[in-house]
């Protein structure tokens, strides 16, 4: 009986997604304070060592503990993806809200700019950005963040176009409520449901984009660890040390999978 109502309230993909996400978040949280080994400590004796109790995920080509580096890499990926989504959401909400609510020439100008930005794949855009401003964690965040603004702006804009015609907005206008207050206090909360699911999808895309950039060598720079750069380094040892590629890859999959399942569950 209890089980039934639990299942009804929380669909299975929500539960699975929540469990995966919570575990990943705990691991990331832990990595801020503790990793089993120093992530840059090399140990030539355990070069490409297979997984064991000493090194849970084995060691890389410099004898560094992969588990520790995976933890740190997840932390980097998470922080970058999180900040990217924060920038994308903030910029997207601002642009989308103003263009959607006011319309007119402001809408025309801003949305054409957004269209141009949107026309390029986000990785390509970030690549250009990084090649101008240099690599590094915060440049990656800035580059991806800007690249993520258009999709949020479009979603928020279409929501605002829908809501600005609502009678409660008109009556707020008549009541003399200021325009900024109408936008941010009256309309914005109505877009939260749509915004939440696009934030979650955006987070997944940001994780993949960060991994992709680090894989290409323009993201997090060595000796700092990132899931993407670990994948790219591991390619050479794909046959001699498959665990080197498997674990970072698995973590990317889990991170994204957990979040998409969670987003699905919340939407339902």
């Amino acid at each position: 009986m209890l089980m039934k109502s639990f299942r009804k309230k929380y669909p299975p993909n929500f539960v699975i997604g929540a469990v995966i996400t919570v575990v990943m978040l705990l691991l990331i949280l832990m990595s801020f304070f503790y990793t089993p080994y120093d992530i840059t400590k090399m140990d030539s004796a355990s070069k490409l060592a297979a997984p064991s109790f000493r090194h849970l995920m084995g060691c890389d080509n410099f004898g560094r503990d992969i588990f520790s580096r995976v933890l740190k890499g997840m932390e980097n990926t998470f922080v970058i993806a999180f900040l990217t989504v924060v920038i994308g959401t903030a910029g997207g909400v601002l642009i989308g809200a103003f263009t959607g609510y006011f319309g007119g020439w402001l809408d025309e100008v801003l949305m054409r700019i957004i269209d141009v930005v949107f026309a390029f794949p986000s990785i390509l855009l970030a690549l250009v950005f990084v090649s101008i401003f240099g690599t590094g964690r915060y440049n990656v965040v800035a580059a991806l963040g800007v690249a993520f603004i258009p999709s949020f702006a479009r979603i928020v804009r279409s929501e605002f176009i829908k809501y600005r015609e609502m009678d409660y907005v008109k009556s707020a206008q008549l009541a003399g409520v200021g325009r900024l207050r109408i936008i941010f206090v009256h309309i914005l909360p109505n877009t939260f449901t749509v915004l939440m699911s696009s934030i979650m999808i955006g987070f997944n895309n940001a994780v993949l984009a960060e991994a992709g950039m680090s894989y290409l060598g323009i993201g997090v720079q060595p000796p700092d660890a990132s899931l993407g750069s670990m994948l790219s380094e591991s390619q050479t040892y794909l046959f001699s040390a498959p665990w080197y590629a498997v674990f970072p890859g698995l973590m990317i999959i889990l991170l994204v999978l957990g979040f998409s399942l969670l987003a699905d569950g919340i939407k339902a």
Partner: peptide, 8 residues
């Protein structure tokens, strides 16, 4: 239905 804000 639409003259009151559903989230307030």
């Amino acid at each position: 239905m639409t003259s009151l804000n559903p989230v307030k």
